[in-house]
Amino acid sequence: MPAEGRQLEKLRHLARHALESGAVSLVIGFAEGTVPGRAAPLFCTAPADADRLIFDGYCTLNLANYLTRPEVRAHQTVALVARHAVAKAVVGLVQESQVDPTRVRLIAIHCPDLDGLQQDVAWTVADGLQTLDEFLPTAAHLHDQELTPERFAAVAQVESKSSHDRWDHFAREFDKCIKCYACRNVCPLCYCERCIADKNQPQWIDTSSTQRGNFAWNIVRAFHLAGRCIDCGACERACPMDLPLMELNRKMKKVVAERFGYVAGYDPKADLPLVTFKKDDPEEFIK
């Protein structure tokens, strides 16, 4: 695949040059994983590290997740190999003051569709290191893909069930949860140092993996991500028990879009929908 090879060369060149020039002191990207079909995150601090960078449809981790780690925060400026979902997460982190946009650069990877996670996805690397502001206009057109019906097919299928069947569906799914918190660990927006699930005195969420604890945890997580989730799907892919976490997250995404006209991940200056309000927000459900 010569075209792809050229893109990879470009990616490595950008990373190498960014480190050589001192523009950044860390590039976070992907390297070959230990198993075929798996990619591992790669933290490049020396220009030579860039030669190990790869990119393909298996590079599914949302690398923005690392930006809030102390080891990464210690770097003055960091570059991310960023497909669209990664950039969206950076937008979310900027909105919540977790990341200083002047200290992040993107090596932007463009895929024809929003996710770009298919194995044979055609991808291209943007010319040059970009700031978030430089990147955003180049991805604005993908906003149109955020709310397509196909994206909400699973949500619609659940919605079509009776309330009783929905309860059974989620009771069955939540019952599988083993509270490993992989969903939390891979989520770029689950950056709380002390998650509410780990709080006692008072303990709002049962820490053990009981039905109640699982229900409370999964509901609260979906609620805490409402209006913030950038729909990257990392949590669902990480779940070892295959919980349909994106059903919840996408439902929240749909509600927020319909009710408040907001889609996360595009405007770093926008107020998140649950920290603001409009005087005439709809309230037909309130008696």
């Binding site: 002390r194 780990d198 709080k199 006692n200 005195q201 303990q203 820490t207």
Partner: peptide, 22 residues
């Protein structure tokens, strides 16, 4: 009983501190 039990599980200093205060 529960607060004592989960207090042991939780490693966060805040909660442990609050527990002691209480």
């Amino acid at each position: 009983g529960q607060s004592v039990k989960s207090g042991g599980l939780d490693s966060h200093p805040t909660d442990a501190g609050m527990e002691r205060e209480k």
